[in-house]
Write a protein that binds this DNA or RNA. Structure first.
Length: 274
DNA sequence: TCTGCATGAAAAA
DNA sequence: TTTTCCTGCAGAG
């Protein structure tokens, strides 16, 4: 599920599997063929995730092609498929593979991304500048987001989805962090207290770091995970996300849902009364 | 096995 | 406001 934590994992895995080696690049699907040809033979120097955007920094080789950045945004469906083949031929592409990057040992296939472009350093910078504070970037400053939020008449549930305000939060983290803070998603940004925002930010940092470690979004506290008695070992990972009509894990009130900014919002009308 | 919905965001209309 | 990426998965059967 590509919220910010997933992209950070992509960055780490791509660097580990492909970094520092001369890569082969191709576009089995064809739509990225020209650009892939420009990447072919370059070395992946670094990966840099910011919010839901991933930047891959390719160094020139002695054959002197210009330095290039690859910009990837997975969007809703996009996914990296990584295989290790250790010198043996990699398995053929499955599905519509926009970009295949191979080292001697690993192959990464990118399918279904919203964005996969070669960009110049100024273009990379423009995207960084446009994005808001990312809870997963150590240098991120929640003050910047607060400046936007505390004078906005837009609801906090909508503000959290704006990547220029907070980068990397998606629909799951939005719903869950507001539940954990007991804040009504429709409350205007300017009606949030500073303490509430600080709490939400700190919680995002904690939740998303946990997401990076585990690869999934789990926001429930152990005491709120009680399920029926028996087996059904499905972990109750969320308080409200995708639980419309089901009882709130804390107060039992049916979870409500509504469309907000073209996304399904979920909240408990009692726990998040204001 | 089939169907419909889902984490996002840019471009088109 | 609608379309586009066109995958993964849960739930139905």
């Amino acid at each position: 599920m590509p919220e910010g934590h997933s992209i950070r994992r992509d960055a780490t895995q791509a660097k580990a599997a492909l970094g520092g080696q001369v890569l082969r690049a191709s576009s089995p699907q064809g739509r990225f063929a020209e650009s892939a040809a420009l990447l072919d033979g370059l070395v992946l120097r670094a990966t840099d995730p910011h919010g839901k955007h991933l930047f891959l920094d390719f160094a020139p080789t002695p054959r002197s092609k210009p330095v290039r950045w690859l910009h990837v945004h997975r969007g809703l469906y996009g996914v990296w498929m990584l295989q290790r083949h250790d010198g043996v031929e990699p398995l053929p592409p499955r599905g519509a593979v926009r970009l295949r990057l191979s080292s001697e040992t690993h192959t990464a296939d990118l399918r279904g991304p919203t964005a996969c472009d070669l960009v110049t350093p100024p273009e990379v910078q423009a995207i960084h500048d446009r994005l808001g504070a990312d809870p997963l970037r150590p240098e991120s400053d929640p003050e910047r987001a607060w400046e936007r939020i505390h004078r906005s008449r837009v609801g906090i549930g909508a503000l959290l989805m704006q990547q220029e305000v907070v980068a990397g939060v998606g629909n799951v983290y939005r719903a869950e962090v507001l539940f954990r803070a007991r804040v009504d998603p429709y409350r205007q940004g300017r009606d949030l207290t500073r303490a509430e925002w600080d709490g939400i930010w700190a919680d995002l940092v904690e939740l998303m770091r946990a997401g990076v470690r585990s690869g999934r979004i789990v926001t429930t506290l152990p005491q709120d995970r009680e399920r029926t008695s028996g087996r059904a070992r499905r972990v109750d990972a969320h308080y409200v996300y995708r639980r419309a009509g089901e009882p709130c894990r804390v107060c039992g009130t049916p979870v409500r849902t509504a469309v907000l900014v073209a996304r399904n919002l979920f909240w408990c009308p009692v726990c998040q009364a204001h």
